[in-house]
Design a protein around this nucleic acid. Structure first.
Length: 325
DNA sequence: GAGTTTGAAACT
DNA sequence: CAGTTTCAAACTC
């Protein structure tokens, strides 16, 4: 699967282990990997990525919820919660009940559609299998180079069947592959792990490497060189040795745009919010807020406490954004 | 641009 | 669940 090289985020613990900091690592959609079974929070998750919805996990109700592209959700079942439209507003389908206070309380979302979708080149799958990146990402093919494409409005029935088949095989088929690690882990990791044998996990064949994350214990790769101290990885990724720099910020190498606004600011004294409140920054902020919601859920806090925690987190995010700017 | 390699997804 | 096949992307020349 392909991912924009210049986008993506993560939430990392501060160097002293204190306040989490916003770092780029993944598109926002990748942040929503963990099911969110806390209903009171879930119903307030109106800031899901545009075009996404939370749906009950298909296989096992106890699993909570899984994130499914809204197009798929609406085709598979009556939407249990309001999807987020591409323009960031709540969908207006009459069968979807949206509590007015939620609707009123919603903050406007800046769409992240600026990330261009990579066209696929499928020839045999009809773009109805997970081989197809468009299909796997819950998107219709558009401006692709595919042949005999069924991943479009004209082939709704076939798409429906294909989606259902995928979910039957794997209820989490459309779950983002990159997510947070185990409880307490903040770094992102591949949810399934890779199975590379020959690439040393240092080529884009490797999903971990492609996502610019290191392989983890769940990977079943052979001859892996995609780990923290790997010299080959450092060379490939042009990561300076921690001893060579005072404050090592390796991810700035991979995701320069979120850090580049500092340089822009130096060059241009007149600053505008859009020069540093980029889509990636917004994505990272949403990721922090979701993480906070999950923490509240795990701690079984009440809704009001959860809201308080999330608001506090939002404040910290704002402070960091201002500091970075 | 054609051919090869690779590993995920699909299939048996 | 393991082995095999299919597939499309990544890579090489």
């Amino acid at each position: 699967m392909s991912m924009p090289q210049s986008s993506g985020l993560s939430v990392q613990q501060g160097q002293t282990g204190g306040t989490p900091t916003i770092k780029m690592a993944q598109p926002f959609s990748q942040h929503c990997a963990s099911p969110i079974p806390f209903p009171s929070i879930r119903h307030n998750l109106t800031n899901l990525p545009p075009g996404s919805s939370m749906a009950p996990a298909p296989s096992n109700g106890s699993l909570g919820y899984t994130m499914v592209p809204t197009e798929y959700l609406t085709q598979l079942q009556p939407a249990p919660c309001a999807p987020v439209a591409d323009n960031g507003s709540l969908a207006s389908e009459p069968n979807i009940h949206v509590s007015s206070n939620i609707a009123l309380a919603r903050l406007p979302i800046i769409t992240t559609d600026s990330r261009s979708k990579k066209p696929c080149n499928c020839t045999k799958s009809q773009c109805l299998k997970l081989y197809c990146d468009c299909f796997a990402n819950g998107e219709f093919c558009s401006n692709c180079n595919c042949t005999n494409c069924f991943n479009n409005f004209e082939h709704e029935a076939e798409r429906f069947k294909a989606i259902k088949a995928c979910l039957d095989r794997n209820p989490e088929a459309f779950r983002p592959k990159i997510g947070k690690g185990m409880l307490g882990e903040i770094k992102l990791r591949h949810n399934k792990g890779c199975n590379c044998k020959r690439s040393g996990c240092l080529k884009n064949y490797c999903e971990c490497y492609e996502a610019k994350i290191m392989c983890s214990s769940i990977c079943k790769c052979i001859g892996c060189r995609n780990y923290e101290e790997s010299p080959e990885r450092r060379t490939l990724m042009s990561i300076p040795d921690p001893g060579d720099v005072g404050l090592c910020q390796p991810w700035t190498k991979f995701y320069p745009d979120i850090f580049s606004y500092r340089k822009q600011v130096k060059v241009k004294q007149e600053r505008h919010p859009f020069t540093f409140v980029t889509c990636d920054v917004i994505d990272a902020t949403c990721g922090c807020l979701l993480a906070q919601a999950e923490e509240a859920e795990k701690a079984h806090h009440s809704l009001s406490v959860a809201e308080h925690m999330i608001l506090e987190e939002f404040g910290r995010c704002l402070a960091q954004i201002l500091h970075k700017s």
